[in-house]
Nucleic acid binder design. Structure first.
Lengths: 135, 135
DNA sequence: GTAGACCCTGTACGTAGGTACCGAGTCAAG
DNA sequence: CTTGACTCGGTACCTACGTACAGGGTCTAC
């Protein structure tokens, strides 16, 4: 299997080298094997893993939560029921985020179509829709 | 119209007083009128505005982006076409976030149903689905 | 008219998530 | 076998987003 140095990994994932080391310290990336010299040899799959971390982050998950998400995959210490409970909790989070996004989206759409109608702007108070609802 | 002191606003919105002042400095809340004494008098609508800010933040928008979103509503300096362009850009962001959430959700669901099947956990490498796709 | 809760400004401190710099060792190409 | 790019670990620094504290004025209920 092809392996990557930290620099190659960072370049392919679009993050910087220090960030990779930081994630390793935080436990988001497994500690990779090393060459004699001490150079890390990352599996290629870590490119995708970094991509996941970045996307999850952009959705407002903290690194701790992302660690949770990633650890859900294999963790021989925990029971099936336990995993299931954690998955359900994450699904609830995700559902709430989706609902919020849908509200923002529909307000933006309303803004787009309504303001298109009356040429010069000036009063397009449609984003108020966002404020009004929920929580 | 009923007005709120900073403490009342903070309590109703579930944030702390310093945070309200911070948002005001950042331009996310309009500077409210003051009493003789210098006490701020917030309109009640700022409760909702704070709620919006918090929800948008939980979706990974920065305060600067949230400021953008909020300023889309009324800004007499800008043209209709300009607003429209900015709205479209935000819609694109939102669409990408939704897509990412959908992927996370479907991976979580797969994890939930698959792991339920084989009692003791140990190897449930389904979250890999997340890594594989996109971007 | 005073006690306790609240507000003012200003500045300092805290946390999450990186990012940069250092001195030293490693690697690949010419 | 040297040169330039890369890597190592360690520590220091930075930005975004708050949060706390200090010293002083205000409000309201008794």
């Amino acid at each position: 299997m092809r392996t990557l140095t930290i620099g190659q990994l960072a370049r392919e994932a679009g993050v910087n080298v220090q960030t990779v080391r930081y994630y390793e310290r935080r436990g988001l990336l497994a500690e990779p094997p090393r060459r004699e010299s001490g150079y890390r040899e990352f599996p290629e799959s870590d490119v995708a893993r970094l991509g996941f971390i970045r996307r999850a982050q952009a959705l407002g998950f903290t690194l701790a939560e992302i660690g949770d998400l990633l650890s859900l995959r294999v963790d021989p210490q925990t029971t099936s029921a336990d995993v299931h409970r954690r998955v359900e909790a994450k699904l609830k989070d995700v559902g709430e985020k989706m609902a919020d996004l849908r509200r923002i989206r529909s307000a933006l759409r309303e803004l787009a179509t309504s303001c298109k109608a009356h040429g010069p702007v000036g009063d397009c108070p449609f984003l108020d829709a966002l404020d009004a609802q929920g929580h």
